[in-house]
Every structure is written in structure tokens, then in C-alpha cells.
Design a protein around this nucleic acid. Structure first.
Lengths: 262, 262
DNA sequence: AATCCTATTTCCAAATAATGGAACTAAGTT
DNA sequence: AACTTAGTTCCATTATTTGGAAATAGGATT
């Protein structure tokens, strides 16, 4: 499951181990890592030591466990500032969230997945899965589908090949064929809906953020729950959502935001 | 300025380069990096390629610039979840921010600096420097001083040795002697104030978060502006601030939060 | 369109670092 | 005391990294 690039020598291996620790998501012991690791004991050990030295991992003496280090939190802030749409989109998202009084998400495609790079909660937030930095599936979220719909065929097939098509809810799209049909509809309408495809009761309306050259650079969504909104009432946000996406796209152009993600 | 650990071989060098890119804070060209880098051209080039491969960096073809990659944003989310006090402290901070109606910061010490790991804005936020993931100086912020005051001498002198003592404002403490005096006062009072020491007009009241064994694991602050509050009126938040810090400390104990930072 | 930059990329033999099987230590268990 | 399991160190072998230099790419200038 872990991304495994060959030809990156030791650095690749070290980052591989870092990823493993990240994916486990809780403090891990050496022996536990060893079981699933493709590296021999001594090698794994040394890689861990190096990462510790570099503060990419931290070690709990008592528990003898490794976990991700604070260095990553620092770096990520810098990454977020310079590599995500978030700082550019910030004022626009604030405004949109204020106006519509619902949760707003800003996302980008990263390696076939939806990476949420920012989120605005209205005063009374609904309980939900997402957080800035969190990743989600592309094929069954509003932002994911909105972004996919506007990719060129090349990029699209690369992204589709990475979809798991796991059936989260009764409404989840679970085949490429269905998905492609949905995407062409979305492209026509300029807008995507999440009809409880990822989480029960959670719906959203979403639009892609396009660069001046028409390339997908991100996605924007307004999310709510069926207890509060219907798809029809979400539809009413369409003009504001599109307008905001357009403004962010323009601003990103001025900032020379890169157009390349897959 | 960049941390340079020896004996970490290639991995250390690669992370070194990554740090350099992070510290520059904006997209950089190869030649620009080369000027300040301690690595020869071919080496630097290959390190950058490796980092690109690993999605730790991204490259803008048109501009020929490197910047931090989204992979870092993803990893950091995991790091934040498993390595920071933030997820543990979340409900307590929400509640505190609600009650006092002012900005609340949660911070940890990382390498002699204050790392903000969470932040709550009241409905009408004041314009301010901080964000989750951002770092700040320890010697002239409320949380920084609060945490330092409760370190043991060993850890304290290590942290103090890393302070820059740059005079941000007329009120900034600029010598170890002054600082130590202030810290002993803070320890007596159990509470620290930032008296516009880092930013003009910005003041805060802050307390350390201590583990059950009395070790510093974080800091908590309520921040405002002199346009709204005086130090005296901030003082009124003291009981709530202390109570919240205590609760977070207890909760962290239950979660076996590590006590080790410097 | 030929020349001269300057920035980036590739090459390859020498230098260095990583590897991993095995041995060792430490801390429990029976 | 013998045994188990987990973590750490050793070191000759192997593989990767290194970096000076040369090649290439893409402007800018004559």
C-alpha cells in the first residue's frame, strides 16, 4: 500500500519507513514495525535512528515506541503556506463561509486522493470527518468528483486507476463506468454533488477551481447534513460557489500557482 | 542556522536540503539554492531529484522553481494527530475559547522555540501572527516564558542557549539575566504575561501545562490586544486558564503523552 | 544564424556509506 | 539457572553516493 519509488536509495528507504509510521497512526514499537517492514532488522534500526536524529520521529523511552516528530508539523506549515492554495484562497473562503453559514472545504488532488488544505466551520459546525491535512477518497466526495470532471483524459485515467471504489454507503459509486458517467454530467453542469456517497447524512455541493488556462488546481465545496439541507436547497449556493471558485482561480493565476497535480 | 546533524549520511543531507527550501519560504531556483548550499552542484541536484521523486518537493516547470510538496502536508496531519497535544486538548480549548471570547493558543516547546499546535479564534479575531504549525520565539511570548519557567535547570539552560534575544518591541526582554528573573517570578505566580514583548499592542496571559509528574508538556494562552484588554482584565481569566491547563495535563497523563521536549 | 552566455543536467571512476547476517546484551519467563 | 523475546552493535562485503568535469539546453547578443 505504501508508495514505493525505486532508485531513491537510502533517502527513499528512510522516507518509506517514515510513511509506515505515519500510516500506522499511533506509536509503534520496533518489533511491530519490523514485522511489516521490507527491511532487515539492522537496516530498519539504523533508519529509525537516523530519523530520530533528524527529529522526524520521536521516541518514547518508557513505552519504547516511535511516532512522528514535531519537526514535521513545522515543515508542514511551511509547505502549506507555499504549496497549497490555502493562503491564496483564505479571504475568499472566509467570505463564502460567512455568507452561506455552512462548512466550506478547500481541497487539492494529491496522488489520486483528495487532500483537504483548508476548512471553515460556521459558528455551529456539524460533526464530520475532515480536517486540514486530512486526505479522503476522490471518487465519492464532492470536491473529488468536481476536480476529476475537469481533468484531461490522461490525468483522469491516472487518477481513476488509483481509486479504491470501496462502498462507504448505499450511495457510493463503485465502478469506473458509473463514475465516468457521473463525471461527464458534472462537467456539463459545472458543479458536483455528494449525495451521501462518503458519509451517511452528509451532502455537499462542489465546484472545481480552474486556472486561467482551464486546468484544475483545486476544488471548493459547501457541506451540510440532510437534517438541515436538501440537495435542492444546496443548489441555491451554486452562484456563490462558482463565483468564489472563479475568484480564487484568478488570484492563483496572479500568484503563479502551479497547475500540476495528479 | 539550519540544524545540521552529522552522521546521518545521505538522509541527513536530503533533509537538510528540504529544510533549506522550507526556510526560504518561497519557490526557489536551483542556482539560488546552490549559492547558499554546502553541497556541490551535482550532489545538490541529485538530492533535489530524490526529494521530488518522493513528493517532498514539487517543481514548477515554467518557473524552474522548487517548493515544498503536498506530501508534507499529509504527513504533518498525521504528526499533529499523534505527536502534539492538540487532539487531546481540543475539547478543553474549545470550551475555554467559548467562555472567554478571546483567542486561545496551545503551544509546545520544540528545539528552543515555541511551536503553536492549535489556535482558537473567537468570532471576531484580532489580526495576529500565529497559526497552527507556526513557530515563534520562546523568550518573548507568554507561552514560551510560561513553559520555560517550569523547566528544570538542565533543560532550561539548553533552551536559553537557543534564544536570539532580538528586540522586537520596546518591551522585549533582551538578556538572559532579565529573563531568568522574569521566569522565577512566573514560577512563583504560576502564570506568565506577554506585555507587548513580541508584537506591539498584543498582550496575553499564559500558563504551562504540566504532566502529573510536574513536567512541562505544553503551554496555553489567552491573547488579546490592548485596545480591548488591560493586563489587569486579562488577570481575571487566570482561574479558568489554570483550570483548563490542569485538565489538559490530566487528560494527557491518561493518554500517556511523552514528557520530553527541549 | 552564429556566438556567447548562463543554468541545468549527465557521466563515471574514486570515495564513502549502507547493508545484513550473526553475535551480543538486556529484560523478562518458566 | 536456562530459556525466550526484544533491541542493539559489529564488521567485512556490497552498493550507493560523490563531485569535478564535460555535455546540453535555452536565452541573449552580436
Amino acid at each position: 500500500m505504501a508508495a514505493e519509488k525505486r532508485g531513491d536509495g537510502t533517502v527513499g528507504k528512510a522516507l518509506d519507513v517514515l510513511n509506515e509510521v505515519a500510516e500506522i497512526g499511533s506509536p509503534v514499537r520496533f518489533s511491530s514495525l519490523l514485522k511489516t517492514s521490507k527491511y532487515p532488522k539492522a537496516t530498519l534500526y539504523r533508519l529509525l535512528q537516523t530519523l530520530l536524529n533528524q527529529n522526524m520521529l520521536s521516541y518514547n523511552d518508557e513505552e519504547q515506541t516511535y511516532k512522528l516528530g514535531l519537526k514535521l508539523v513545522r515543515m508542514a506549515h511551511a509547505a502549506w503556506l507555499q504549496s497549497s492554495l490555502a493562503p491564496i484562497a483564505l479571504p475568499f473562503i472566509d467570505k463564502l463561509s460567512d455568507k452561506v453559514g455552512e462548512t466550506v472545504h478547500l481541497a487539492q488532488l494529491d496522488n489520486g486522493q483528495v487532500l483537504y488544505v483548508d476548512k471553515r466551520n460556521p459558528s455551529s459546525p456539524i460533526e464530520m470527518y475532515s480536517q486540514a491535512g486530512k486526505v479522503g477518497p476522490a471518487y465519492c466526495t464532492g470536491v473529488g468528483k468536481a476536480m476529476m470532471a475537469f481533468l484531461d483524459e490522461d490525468a483522469l485515467s491516472r487518477v481513476i486507476s488509483k481509486q479504491a471504489f470501496f462502498k462507504y454507503t448505499d450511495f457510493t459509486i463503485t465502478s469506473e463506468k458509473e463514475l465516468r458517467k457521473e463525471l461527464s454530467l458534472i462537467k456539463k453542469q459545472g458543479i458536483a454533488f455528494d449525495k451521501q456517497e462518503h458519509e451517511v447524512k452528509i451532502i455537499c455541493i462542489s465546484s472545481p477551481i480552474l486556472s486561467s488556462k482551464g486546468r484544475v488546481i483545486g476544488g471548493l465545496s459547501i457541506t451540510s447534513s440532510i437534517d438541515i439541507h436538501s440537495l435542492e436547497s444546496l443548489q441555491e449556493f451554486k452562484p456563490q460557489l462558482l463565483k468564489t471558485s472563479e475568484l480564487i482561480g484568478k488570484e492563483a493565476g496572479a500568484w503563479n500557482f502551479p497547475e500540476q497535480n495528479n
